[in-house]
Nucleic acid binder design. Structure first.
Lengths: 335, 335
DNA sequence: CTGAAAGCGCTTACAG
DNA sequence: CTGAAAGCGCTTACAG
């Protein structure tokens, strides 16, 4: 069997408790004792058994991250940022893919990995406001990014409204008035799609511009493929448009592809803007104007709040909005 | 405290052992008993404690996946595939980012997550052949993708040689003779960069074409940014070239960007091919000719072999090469 | 600063 | 098909 604390204790000539103290960084140990224990740990190749610690202490040092899918660059980059932020707190991350499916999201909430995670970062896409009751989890949880419940939970949010507004105003300033939107979810009242579309419409209204209904193109999952399909449909409809606001970058990149295929010049004929600022947006041709939602800040803040909750912080629930930034690139401004 | 097996047993009027039998799917239980237990589990909201099970049984149902970084689309898409494949075996995946740094890769091997993972899928980039000794891990392990040790381990490999050869032959068939390569790692003798470059050079040699030394462009990490920089350097060198083989897709996409910036026409002036077939390759402008390494097959096969090892399979170590496919797109063939 | 005892919630033999 | 006992490897009070 594996080396246990007992073995280390024997080897070092101390009690198991002392080894435990060394492992957990308990400060009041004579330095000589600590050195002796560390030497024994090294000599025997001892490795703490997390399950045993967890069973007794109720802690694993693991946090869960539930996202729709890692194939979506936004979530892959978010996961990277979360893992990095968690590491700084000595925490490991366990990722769960929900596919943005309501049942799977509920499952992620209901069974926190067999008591295996100390806390959960949760990026819900499939849940609706009626699911608020399910948010009363036993494990601490922080909601990420998008959909807003006004429930008893901490949120670290993208500034969807201001970010979308900035992108829309940018298109208006270029003189564009017939702006298509790609990625709407008709019928959905909450959720990113609705929030961003409403912010878009409100910005237009403020500028005295009428939104054009035929230019709102639905797209279920926000992939490149669906973005391309939506743009194909828009082009086929023969509706006139001089700009596109894609509700995220992958949609925008799919749309750019379809526009290029049909020989539509970007930004001369049609200006295109996205949302997310994934790495890819800097390298597409043309490069993509987009809203940086502050991914690194979101990850770091969320982990920090979660760690606080795990340590018993029971102050009022917080709603933090990350700082966005509009990056203007060739798809609206030209080379 | 949380509900335990004992509580469920009491509620159902059976012994804890019977509850345990139900939880683990032990078949010889009277159906009526099972129903009663399941009802109690439901009524009490019981949730098995994985740590306790692990402590006794030595199993967690978790496998580790060590990759360089999730921000690289290839690894994000691989992780997605691995998570999906693991799910089919009832396994959860814990991802570790190594940053392709040797020390971190060694750490991932040395401490298998505090006895928390039953097996490890490992995609090494930083290790060299001298590190073979470190592969003797106590937990079962399968190596993914790239660098080949002839050590005592299972491998599921990309067909780097045949894939690169196919891409190179395609460029030669187009009549290109001055083929640049982006992403070399000079001095490295093993590893993906070396394998792919050597396959490229061998293919040229077979065709009686001399490789041109000045056209081999180094790039450390295979990001879009480094691909763009390498291409900028190549253009600045004023060397003549009529094709580019990028050693992966992100490099190719960065290179495409730099070519577009300088007004070089692809594929008319320069044909470009990559490797990996990430989703993005279908949607870039121009779309990217690339080698599909068989990601889904790699993930499924690796998980399958790992599960076998976890179940005590101790037959000879296997080296499996996934089926590649060359996808010809606009970056070499035009619209 | 360090030790001896108890117990976290399961599963593994062993009976029956 | 089901039960009673032991123990996995830690940490948590409690002493000293």
């Amino acid at each position: 069997m594996a080396v246990t604390m007992r073995d280390v204790a024997q080897h070092a000539g101390v009690s198991p408790k002392t080894v435990s103290n060394v492992m957990s960084g308990y400060p009041f140990i004579r330095d000589e004792t600590r050195q002796r224990v560390l030497a024994s740990i090294d000599a025997l190749g001892y490795q703490l058994n997390i399950s045993a610690r967890n069973l007794k202490s109720g802690r694993t040092g693991i946090i869960g991250l539930a996202v729709p899918e890692l194939s979506l660059p936004y979530f892959a980059e978010l996961a990277d940022a979360v893992i990095t932020a968690a590491e700084e707190h000595g925490l490991t991350v366990m990722i769960e893919q929900t596919g943005a499916i309501r049942e799977r999201e509920l499952a992620a909430l209901a069974r926190p990995r067999g008591h295996l995670v100390d806390g959960l970062l949760f990026s819900p896409l499939g849940l609706g406001p009626d699911d608020v009751e399910h948010l009363h989890t036993s494990t601490p949880m922080v909601l990420l990014g998008e959909r807003i419940f006004h429930g008893p939970v901490d949120h670290v949010m993208i500034d969807n409204v201001a970010g979308t507004r900035a992108a829309t105003e940018h298109l208006l300033e270029l003189g564009r008035r017939r702006i298509a939107v790609i990625g709407t979810h008709p019928g959905e009242l909450v959720g990113t799609a609705a929030i961003r579309y409403d912010a878009f419409a409100a910005t237009l209204a403020d500028a005295g511009v009428e939104p054009i209904e035929q230019l709102a193109m639905p797209a279920g999952p926000w992939h490149r493929a669906t973005g391309a399909e939506a743009m194909e449909a828009l082009i086929a409809s023969e509706a006139r448009f001089d700009a596109v606001l894609a509700l995220n970058d992958t949609l925008a990149l799919g749309a750019l592809r379809a526009l290029a295929k049909h020989g539509v010049r970007v930004p001369d004929d049609v200006a295109v803007a996205g949302f997310d600022d994934i790495d890819e947006a800097q390298y597409s041709t043309p490069s993509l104007t987009t809203v940086d939602p502050g991914r690194a800040q979101i990850a770091a803040t969320a982990v920090e709040i979660l760690v606080g909750r795990m340590n018993g912080d029971d102050t009022a629930h917080r709603e933090i909005v990350a700082q966005y930034a509009l990056h203007i690139r060739e798809s609206t401004a030209g080379p």
